[in-house]
Design a protein around this nucleic acid. Structure first.
Lengths: 195, 195
DNA sequence: GTGTGCATGTAAGTGGTTACATGATTGA
DNA sequence: TCAATCATGTAACCACTTACATGCACAC
């Protein structure tokens, strides 16, 4: 436990959580942006295949990233009047992110937490009508999300820097369409259940 | 802060997390089981559409559930020699679980955390070959999971108490099949990318 | 007699959320 | 002038994981 206070922290003592890389990734596309903008971005795209951290989490992540030298920030530029802080990725950050992206030979298992399925799984405790209603509600929500994804995809159209994000969005679009089919099939299964 | 030690705690001061209901749900099917068995169960079914808590978490959840009177436990029955603790759901617990299952008119949005998609999204930072390899790896893993789901589904076959869990497994099976298609389609998209 | 599975639990720590607090800017 | 949006941040809390510790039973 000697030397508790090193002025320059060792490059990376502990591995960063995926969230940190996701936030840094958001900054790896051309342009600078504020934490607030990052949150909206995450809501509009990341969310569909990874998840959107709380805004407070994004700010915390940005501070950590800055302390590692992976991003820099500047307060309210000459033109802009507001008290806002704009972040940009550094060369070091880009390098670290590229290392992370290229390192693993296995991205890791996907985590799915589907509350609707949890209810269906416990279906013996409630009425068939209620279960049906939940599935129907889920279908409606999914249709809404599908619309959002398609809008996001349209915005990325043609911009070459967005090529990969667009593939992710296309995947999400197909995924949501399949989610609808899955829900319909489950509705049919539910109907075939003996009362 | 008067009366810190009420012998019978008020039914539920704070809402329980979904995990608690999932664990209680595991006990809502006929039979008693140990924490260890619960974990294996969760790994074999819950995991495919919700997720499997760490074993230590399951033990913690069981203690909480017991303190609420939702489950009871007994140590090593007359026959069984080992130091194990077997849990069973109580009428109170079953009631609370049924309330939870029947209460919401909306199960809540599904959360998907797909590390592979995160890498693809950041594809501009790595090589097309590496990206392809990750997708291929994911396909292999998914095939393995599909096999597991089908095995689990086969075990539930015909048992009437498992009707709903089986629907959840059937959903999972279809979902994994669609996951494979999605991955293949993404592979095709990746190939069409200009270098 | 040794490793694997069964079985339970503690301690420490991280990741993340919600609620709260603050204030400037924009447009109806 | 009032509400919504932009913008940042703190504090408290909780959910959950990892690592560790322990020990029995059984098969090879």
């Amino acid at each position: 436990m000697a030397d508790q206070h090193t002025s320059a922290p060792p490059p990376a003592d502990r591995a960063l959580p995926a969230t940190a890389w996701a936030v840094l990734g958001l900054l790896s596309f051309p342009g600078e942006r504020t934490g607030y903008e990052l949150k909206k971005w995450a809501d509009a795209s990341l969310r569909f295949f990874y998840w959107s951290p709380a805004i407070s989490q994004i700010y915390a992540e940005l501070r950590r990233l800055e302390s590692l030298g992976y991003v820099t920030s500047r307060r309210s530029g000459p033109e802009e009047p507001r008290t806002k802080r704009t972040y940009a990725i550094t060369a070091l950050g880009r390098g670290a992110l590229a290392d992370w992206a290229g390192s693993a030979q296995d991205a890791g298992a996907a985590v799915l937490k589907h509350p609707l399925l949890l209810r269906v799984w416990l279906g013996h405790l409630t009425s068939p009508e209620h279960l049906r209603a939940l599935v129907v509600e889920h279908i409606a929500r999914t249709k809404g999300e599908l619309k959002e994804v398609m809008d996001a995809g349209a915005q990325a159209e043609g911009v070459e820097a967005w090529a990969h994000p667009q593939i992710a969005l296309r995947w999400s679009e197909r995924r949501l369409k399949s989610e609808l089919e899955l829900a319909e099939a489950m509705l049919a299964d539910l109907d075939e259940l003996p009362s």
